[in-house]
């Protein structure tokens, strides 16, 4: 274990909300050195030296990680390890928390998302998010899906909007179940249906990346299986970044896995490798169930 804890303060007090430049991979300024290859051939998102502070709490330390097109990357780790926090950096949802401070470099298709010129509305339209607890708006099923297209002006008229709603629900595998009750409130659906409604709502805006924050933790096994099938389908078109508590789920749905521990990214690798042959002691301990 190598602990180098010198530059923390200077990063925190950097004038912009992020440190300039990016350190070479695997040589982080503080915290753990990540084991495994963080880079990919065709990255959609590239993160370098990302730090997140909540007030005085240093929630994420020097995380560097690439996310590839059309892959499902799973983030695992014990609770409170910063997986969700990291996820919320990728669409700048941390901006809504007044005390949160993010530093480091994150780029989407080569474009720095924390750049002043980057519009956060535009970013979130490109990086969609599905949350831990299904959170349909207290509106009808139809209005839930139509919400994104409406605010972004994606549909020229009602027919086009109908079409977007229908395709999105179809691609989320929910159309058959709800096509007769589009006017009912979204909150009246079952938990699994609600979560698929949220997925449909997300893909209705045609994002490039979908972030999923423990999307199945509030669902029963059958609903979980349906969502997992859906993730499998969706990965043909989107990069999906999923935070999960369940190692089995990570093994089932993802191609790559990243293991987080207390704000550090410990190890990254192909899912097969992480689960069969972890290279870091902490990863191994977690996989084998010593803690978590």
């Amino acid at each position: 274990m190598v602990f180098v804890s010198s530059a923390e303060a200077s990063i925190k007090t950097a004038p912009a909300s992020r440190a300039s430049g990016s350190a070479p991979p695997e040589r982080t300024a503080a915290g753990q050195r990540t084991v495994g290859d963080i880079t990919v051939k065709n990255p959609v998102i590239v993160c370098r030296d990302v730090n997140v502070y909540y007030g005085d709490k240093h929630a994420i330390r020097n995380v560097s990680l690439d996310i590839a097109h059309n892959e499902v990357i799973a983030m695992i780790g014990p609770s409170g390890c910063g997986k969700s926090t990291f996820l919320r950096c990728l669409n700048r949802l941390n901006d809504t928390i007044p005390t949160a401070l993010v530093s480091g470099a994150i780029s989407l298709e080569g474009q720095d998302i924390y750049d002043k010129r980057q519009d956060v509305v535009q970013l979130r339209a490109r990086v969609g998010m599905v949350f831990q607890k299904p959170n349909p708006f207290p509106k009808s099923v139809y209005e839930n899906v139509a919400y994104g297209p409406r605010i972004h002006g994606l549909a020229a008229d009602r027919t086009e909007l109908d079409e977007i709603v229908q395709t999105s629900l179809q691609r989320a595998g929910l159309w058959e179940e709800v096509k007769d009750r589009l006017e009912q409130p979204g909150t009246a659906l079952s938990g699994g249906q609600q979560q698929r409604l949220c997925i449909a709502r997300t893909i209705a805006v045609n994002p490039e990346v979908i972030l999923m924050d423990e999307p199945c933790s509030a669902l029963d096994p059958i609903a979980t299986a349906r969502i997992e099938d859906l993730i499998d389908e969706l990965k043909q078109n989107y990069a999906i970044c999923i935070v999960t508590h369940s190692m089995q789920q990570a093994a089932r749905v993802s191609q790559r896995t990243a293991y987080f521990h207390l704000g550090d990214l410990i190890e990254v690798g192909s899912t097969d490798q992480i689960f069969t042959n972890p290279r870091h002691k902490l990863t191994e301990d977690y996989i084998t169930g010593r803690f978590g």
Partner: peptide
């Protein structure tokens, strides 16, 4: 097709900002 759709979204969002 998905990439096209995404590009379209990007354009329309840009326009609406």
């Amino acid at each position: 097709a998905v990439e096209n759709a995404a590009k379209r979204t990007r354009r329309l969002v840009e326009k609406s900002l």
